[in-house]
Design a protein around this nucleic acid. Sequence first.
DNA 1: GTTTTTCTGTTAAAATAATAATATCTGAAA
DNA 2: TTTCAGATATTATTATTTTAACAGAAAAAC
Lengths: 217, 217
Amino acid sequence: MSKDENEKISLAVVKRLPRYYRYLGDLLEHGITRISSGDLSKKMGVTASQIRQDLNKFGCFGQRGYGYNVEMLYAEIKKILGLDREYNMIIIGAGNLGQALANYPNFRKRGFKFIGAFDKNPDIVGKTAGDVVIMDISELEPFLKENRVDIAVLSIPKYNAPKISPILVENGVRGIWNFSHIDLNTPDSVVVENAHLTESVMTLSYKLSELEKNNKE
Amino acid sequence: MSKDENEKISLAVVKRLPRYYRYLGDLLEHGITRISSGDLSKKMGVTASQIRQDLNKFGCFGQRGYGYNVEMLYAEIKKILGLDREYNMIIIGAGNLGQALANYPNFRKRGFKFIGAFDKNPDIVGKTAGDVVIMDISELEPFLKENRVDIAVLSIPKYNAPKISPILVENGVRGIWNFSHIDLNTPDSVVVENAHLTESVMTLSYKLSELEKNNKE
DNA sequence: GTTTTTCTGTTAAAATAATAATATCTGAAA
DNA sequence: TTTCAGATATTATTATTTTAACAGAAAAAC
């Protein structure tokens, strides 16, 4: 029996799910059919308590005296993460990063399907990125009216993002994966996940500086 | 006067610093020379308390009755994040993503300098990525012995990562920016920052599923 | 100059999150 | 059957993180 359906689950927990999912996938690949929270905790370097509590937020997937059935838990997390369906994606800004994402085979495998790519640079319009032909950015709006787009990948310079974002929102895009260095201002009917690579590398440089500071002491 | 130097600062705080840095940079660009925590909090959508407390972890940068001097605070955070120096970087796995990173001009601007790229695919060895020629992966170890490499960007398939990671560690690389879908097992003398894009997009699909679930109710 | 307002640093309180402890259930072996 | 170790669900505790409150210093106004 699952918990109170309306309980809002914290982002901290949600962000850990993909990691559980990855480890369970690895276990499956190795033919392991069951695992206890204790064993999983050793593999993952987290406490068994945390694993149990995280999973219990979504339901009772384990069995006392047995542990978790790997295949079943994997399928449950897949469902929880919304990976049991297909998403139509488009790329806005088909530069190096955009093309890299479009060419990444794992997305397709997981149900993220690129159905369009747009750029304003005439040098690359007409070329292909992954399976799709790059269109001029002026074709974005008509395209959105013709096709159901679930997720837009925004990999354009920050000063262009505020112009594009409302076009997406107004034409039914509900999810934005934002690689642009800016915080988007979207209504609650749209979800944004930021992938600010620059901030990630800055965290790394902070850690490096700390490391060196400690070594000197 | 800065606080207890040995106090360990939580990752949550550190991860917010780049965002402060970004907003301060924007303010600078707009010629704004001072700002109060209250005004900044409105812009950023966080509490003023949090801003004050975050910054206070590193020192007393503000002035009562005045606020924060934007230029000075920007410079301080730059120093805290370790962005006041240069880092030599290499790319391991010069596929689409690796090349996209190598070509990203902002890294260079911020002091992250690519000095090498490696791949095992003979089709791309010899081509250029950003400013550097892609070398065969067999040249990695000799290269590390000849050059000071601060950061290695790991963008290779997960099954190769465990082979490469020890080579990096043993040859003095202290920072790894990990795009491979695996958790690296490195000693404490090395820092790792994960940039797991797949996990990021899974978080997005979770949020999307939640959104749709709530709309149905 | 003096007074008023602004706005930080700091302390305290509240809210969250992580960990530990306990009670309960399962399944296999005796 | 019965027993018992294994392992979770759940509750309690502790730790961390965030928010709020406030005293007091500096700036601005008069």
